[in-house]
Amino acid sequence: MRYGFLDEDAKKEIRRATLKAIAIPGYQVSFASRELPIARGWGTGGLQVTLAIINEEDCLKVIDQGCDGSVNAVNIRNFIVSVTDNQTTLDTVCADIIQSRHRIPEEPMREGQTLVLQVPYPEVLTNVEADSYKQKVMHANSDYAKLWVLLYEDTAQFGDSRIGHRYPVMVHDRYAMDPSPIPKYDTKKLNNNKALILLGAGREKKIYAIPPYTKVEPLKFEDREFKVESFANKKCARCGASGVFMDEVHTNEGEVKFYCNDTAYCDKQLEKGAR
């Protein structure tokens, strides 16, 4: 099988979309989106991006919900390795390409790294406008009034937006963008990130990007605080870390425990502690 599974023309098309996406931060570029031997909705957008950009020298990390060992992460990593024979890592710092679903790693990323996020709903306007042509017109006019109305209605009723994850962001003061289903805790990491962030939606056939050092801000009213998930006074029951995004686990004994969601980060903390 050829390196990276996809034929060269498919890669060229994805690369072209990727370059245009980098040039117009937050704008969704359409692409043909090939079917892969992995089901639609399981990360095929991110996977196509990864397969189109990866080369022999890249070290790869794949995570799902913060975990390298999750079944879907294992499956995607195994598939990529089977078609590239590339080196893989669990360490955020060592990776050149990180493909992730629903999380941005705890450890800061650096210049030259690429974060590929899997996206189920690339269109930030879906919840307020179902028609894709009208969505495109709204983006063309930078007309996000309907999003603001939604935010206003939620705030009036519940004191804040009801959106828990995939919180809308404004990119480079121009495009409203769906940042993929990351928690609000990760939203602030999009701003001025040193790594290139590529977002791929396979089923919806869209690629978009945030170049390094790009202004990315959550859509919010000026007089309202952007509340992120808080795990105040919680410590990881495994490594003792605090101030990170945590998983809430209900044990068989009925206890509630908290663990670092980023398992590679947790391993590192544990190792540091042991030393």
Binding site: R15, I22, L196, A209, P211, P212
Partner: peptide
Amino acid sequence: FKSLSDALA
């Protein structure tokens, strides 16, 4: 491609 995308990014 890596060179081209790095340059543009």
